[in-house]
Amino acid sequence: MSMQLGLDGMPARLVRVTPSRLATWEDCRRRYRLTYLDRPAPPRGGARAASTLGAVVHNALHAVFGEPPARRSGARAAVEVDRRWSSEGFRDDEQAAVHRERARAWVADYVERHAVPDAPEPMGEVVGLERWLSAPAGAMVAEGRADRLDQRGGEVVVVDYKTGRRVPDADDARRSPALALYALAARRTLRRPCHRVELHHLPSGTVAAADHDDAGLAAHRERAEATAVALGAAADALEEDPRRAEDLFPPAPGPRCGACDVRRHCPEGRAAAPAEPAWSGLAP
């Protein structure tokens, strides 16, 4: 357990957080408890097609970028999609086949534009793939696994792949708490400057980028630290008195509850929205 000195001179626990933990807490505290604290963990919903598709694309790109540039190609990328394909969460074989071909085209085009020798839009030298990053920051230890870290002009760039329906823009990249925490952790882990963060949207072929200054990263860190302190205090209070679970971790019902993977354990969520089919998050 990570420690630091508290105000009274006694060791104070550093709260270990990931971007996913922070986002879940901000979204719904009941879901946070059910996902991260309750033991044994309650059963969760089945696979969702959009998540399956995203995982396949991420894994295929990981395999391709793990090879030297001379061995990368769009055709190789498409084969990696086939090797890693899963139909979990799709409505039927026909729907799965359509999205499998889409994923093949996405990764093939992406690799040909960015990753092969003489690529028209090269992304620099890859210095980290699915790299685990961890760095203490005030009262928290920020951790997470970055999709890719590139080195360009002596600086590290954080790259995050996206496969969702919505096309992200520069504001999304700038506002992303996850990318900011990865940039902070990359600085400490790799001991190199890191200001630029990018969202690479495979379906549209776009790159949404933002260049953080130190003040912007500091603001992200302060917000994340405040959230980490709050969720850590709630977890400690729950451990002291499990009867306070509903008080400490109330639900936040809304339309998104239709796709929540713990909705079976949340009457308020089930009342807020009907269950969405497992393939509802796919692009038309």
Rank of each mutant, 00 (worst) to 15 (best):
Q4G: 01
L5K: 12
G6V: 02
G9A: 12
G9S: 07
G9M: 11
A12I: 01
R16M: 11
T18W: 11
P19I: 06
P19K: 05
A23W: 01
D27A: 13
D27M: 09
R31C: 12
T35N: 06
D38K: 13
G45V: 02
S51F: 00
V56L: 07
N59Q: 15
A60D: 06
A63S: 14
R71Q: 13
R76Y: 02
V79W: 13
S86N: 11
Q95M: 14
W106H: 12
D109W: 14
V111A: 04
E112L: 05
A115E: 12
A115F: 07
P120M: 03
P120E: 05
E121K: 11
M123N: 09
G124Q: 10
R131Y: 10
R131D: 10
P136V: 03
A139L: 03
V141D: 10
V141Y: 08
R145G: 01
A146W: 02
D147Y: 11
L149T: 13
Q151D: 13
V159W: 14
V159G: 03
D160R: 11
Y161R: 10
T163F: 02
D169Q: 09
D171W: 06
D172R: 14
A173W: 01
R174H: 07
R174P: 01
A180F: 00
R187K: 13
L199K: 03
H200G: 02
P203Q: 07
P203K: 05
T206Q: 08
V207E: 09
A208K: 07
G216R: 11
R221V: 09
R223I: 00
A224D: 02
A226M: 03
V229F: 02
D236W: 00
P242S: 04
R243D: 14
R244M: 07
R244Q: 12
L248P: 09
G258P: 11
C266A: 10
G269D: 06
R270I: 00
A271Y: 05
A273R: 13
P274D: 15
S280P: 06
A283H: 10
